[in-house]
Design a protein around this nucleic acid. Structure first.
Lengths: 250, 250
DNA sequence: CGGCAAATTGAGCATTGTCAATGTCTGTGG
DNA sequence: CCACAGACATTGACAATGCTCAATTTGCCG
């Protein structure tokens, strides 16, 4: 019931869905030392080459991980939502191999690397829950390789929209089949390996086909089954079966 | 010094490079119950949708993880070499989200899921080493997203060749700048999101440019720096700094 | 030597990229 | 309340990277 509880609560709830935690586990998680920072839209949480001293939990807002090629092309490799521990790897690997950037204004809770190392050394069950979390991240990376490597532009974007829909819904951050997409078309392009121009064309096409409805940054999915089919989307890779249910409010 | 030692030794050596293990850790790893199987070229170790009862350590040979889209296109998402624990996730996640297939004839040591769960519950240091391993896998997935998403065919293939060169060298499985590529051009295509025909053209081009030398399945890299530049390859993402050195024989 | 998988090559095509102009929305300051 | 700046979205014309289809060659193995 202390002030920090509220901040770390989202994280605790997520980890609890990865496996049962006992009272001591919960206590250890909630007592993780941390400082909350407000991050401006576009600011970097981590830069490639950094040797981060802390890992960041997203409390509110959205962030992406991305890499930039020598030619200057940017590829977004994942999108993170509140409750996600971005850069947990920072606590175990020595040097960051990618950037983490705020997509919107964010609040993040920064936890010192040392505290995380101690936590996982002393509480195996917590370590396991965190590990499962990074394994699911890995599963999503794999699906992204498939998305970018083997789907055409239309399916690629449809797939991304399906993934967001499900992830946001499970996290309780979106109504069913309707959500605010926190990305510009340029960022969508960087996530799908396309150009902004082409993303625009495909979005228009998906609208014309009645597969999505757009107004502002909001996306509505009038016919989930149709979009799912267009995307070739199958949610196995999100491992929602690890989430025994009940995170989302109506 | 028992028979199993030899089989699991490669794995032990790799995990030891992820962080110091004490005698009890080592013992627990080496006493992991396992059965060695010979796997035919092309056989599946895991299929998408399986609920695997064991995880497999590659003792010899090569394997890939891949997914197939609804349209039937295949995307290879990673390539694994001897000493790699493929499908460690199998022990922590409920259902496999991808296939694991032998690229060549392989020997694998299969460890029951339960034994792994017990190991990580009782030996945090071992769990941490394994976790780091899966984090590095994740880093490689991220780089693959970039490769497939934002590099043209020439750089994409050059990048793959650079990655193999370094990984094989570090594992002591290849002489410097020369190795046997265990993949057909069709498989290279599936790993890079290209078509076999185009892979062929690019390989021919790289040969003509003097960036690689080919004979049979062997690849030689006469000018590492030139190939590295063509690929935009930077090995940070392999996190070789976690490997304090000394795995590779001359 | 035949059989097969893999590699190579050519010709034509199309999905997606490039470049550049124009339209739209939002917030801000006067 | 309006004008304007700036970021983002939209559109068109054209180019090109990489794909398709199909034939042919090479290398390997019994």
């Amino acid at each position: 019931m202390t002030v920090p509880k509220k901040i770390l609560d989202l994280m605790l709830r997520k980890f609890e869905t990865r496996g049962p935690l006992d009272a001591a586990d919960r206590k250890a998680l909630l007592e993780l030392p941390h400082r909350v920072h407000a991050i401006e839209h576009g600011a970097y949480l981590v830069r490639e080459g950094d040797r981060p001293e802390r890992s960041c939990l997203i409390v509110s807002g959205f962030a992406v991980r991305h890499k930039v090629t020598v030619e200057g092309a940017r590829q977004i490799v994942s999108v993170h939502i509140p409750g996600d521990f971005v850069d947990l790897e920072g606590s175990l690997l020595n040097v960051a191999d990618h950037n983490v950037q705020a997509l919107t204004r964010c609040e993040v809770a920064c936890v010192p690397k040392e505290a995380i190392r101690e936590l996982i050394a002393s509480r195996p069950t917590v370590a396991k829950a965190m590990w499962i979390d990074t394994l699911i991240d890995g599963a999503i990376f794999r699906e992204w390789v498939v998305n970018v490597g083997r789907r055409d532009a239309r399916a690629r974007i449809a797939h991304l929209l399906c993934e967001f829909a499900r992830r946001l819904e499970v996290a309780g951050l979106a109504a069913e089949y309707r959500y605010e997409l926190p990305m510009t078309q340029e960022q969508l392009a960087d996530a799908t390996g396309l150009t902004p121009v082409h993303v625009n064309r495909v979005l228009m096409q998906l609208s014309r086909e009645g597969l999505i409805e757009r107004s502002r940054r909001f996306v509505g999915i009038p016919d989930w089954e149709a979009l799912r089919r267009a995307a070739g989307f199958s949610e196995t890779y999100l491992h929602l079966d690890q989430v025994p249910r009940g995170l989302a409010p109506a």
